[in-house]
Design a protein around this nucleic acid. Sequence first.
DNA 1: GAAGGCATGTAAATCGTTACATGATTTA
DNA 2: TAAATCATGTAACGATTTACATGCCTTC
Lengths: 201, 201
Amino acid sequence: MSSLTPTARVILGMLKLGMRTGYDVKKAIDTSTRFFWTASYGQIYPELKRLRKAGLVRAEAKPRGRVKRTVYSLTPKGERALHEWLTDSENVLFELRDEGLLRLFFGDLISREEVLANLRVQQQLFKMVLARFREIEVDARGGFADESQRFPHLALRYGIDFITWSRDWYAEAERRLEAGEPLVELEDGETGGRKRGLAAR
Amino acid sequence: MSSLTPTARVILGMLKLGMRTGYDVKKAIDTSTRFFWTASYGQIYPELKRLRKAGLVRAEAKPRGRVKRTVYSLTPKGERALHEWLTDSENVLFELRDEGLLRLFFGDLISREEVLANLRVQQQLFKMVLARFREIEVDARGGFADESQRFPHLALRYGIDFITWSRDWYAEAERRLEAGEPLVELEDGETGGRKRGLAAR
DNA sequence: GAAGGCATGTAAATCGTTACATGATTTA
DNA sequence: TAAATCATGTAACGATTTACATGCCTTC
């Protein structure tokens, strides 16, 4: 099992992808993994120091003019730890915290109109997120999206596709609630009977 | 804006849905919102005490035999706070932490075979999650799924549909990587040109 | 009589955000 | 010359998990 802290995982990867300073790493996170893996300065700088003490990264003072600046890179030990984590399939962390869904869960406690309003607000939020994603996708041409770095783009695609799917799911839920149709379809049998999800198309 | 802590939100809702003890609330969370909203005993019991001090819930000692037992219910103030939160559209919390995606993001740092292995492991995990979800959906007949409580079932449906979608997305990514096809399709124009997501069907 | 479920709690550790502080360099 | 960006860091607070501790009641 990998013993890297959550923040260490993204730091080591970003350093390997060419980021050099803590500031760089933070910027890269904010423009790429932010949707599914965040980290703040309050995590990054202390973690870089821990990683240095543990011998996974080396630090070099590389001031730019009079500005102090520390450039980090992976040690062989850090390379090994990164590769080990990337190919380890135990306990893959997956956490979701979705307040919109929690509200939907409690939909029976408010009026139909209030639920409809919530469903519409959610769709608006998804549309705003999508707009931001699309900007990033265009910007990214200069950043990660060259031949040797296809996967950052693929992960971004997952984000766009997921939010699109989710927006459509909410739209369908709204439509059904408005039309007075059953919210969830009845099961067909256990086997083979491909269960049509609410937003299946 | 709602000032309820994350744990308070789910506790108040669960009490309103009929849960009575801290233990009940925990069990309800574990069998229903766990996928998108968790809470541990270490959160729930202290939070119940805070809510009582704040006057949002009342606590009655209702021992069962010799076992001490505290039964909670909402005060009018608690009802108001719950309703306010359920209909408040500011700052809707959405957080995702997905290690599988982070690994995919760093796919350029490992071999094609290793990426394929990761994609397959992810699909297996999704299938296991789906199996658990389906059990819950069947069990839930006795719990939430009566006429007056349709929305818990709908939220569960979202979970099932989402994981199903995600599994399919990973399957398509695997297929493309195996076939040597481009991982992300090129854009067609800005307008109207319905961008086909990787796993669109 | 053993196992599992009901029930309540705390302590320690970890994880993470937010707000603050500082100052140089580059660009408009 | 003002604003944005580069760059590093800390302190306080808040959220959360894990592990531990306890003991009764119900079902097999």
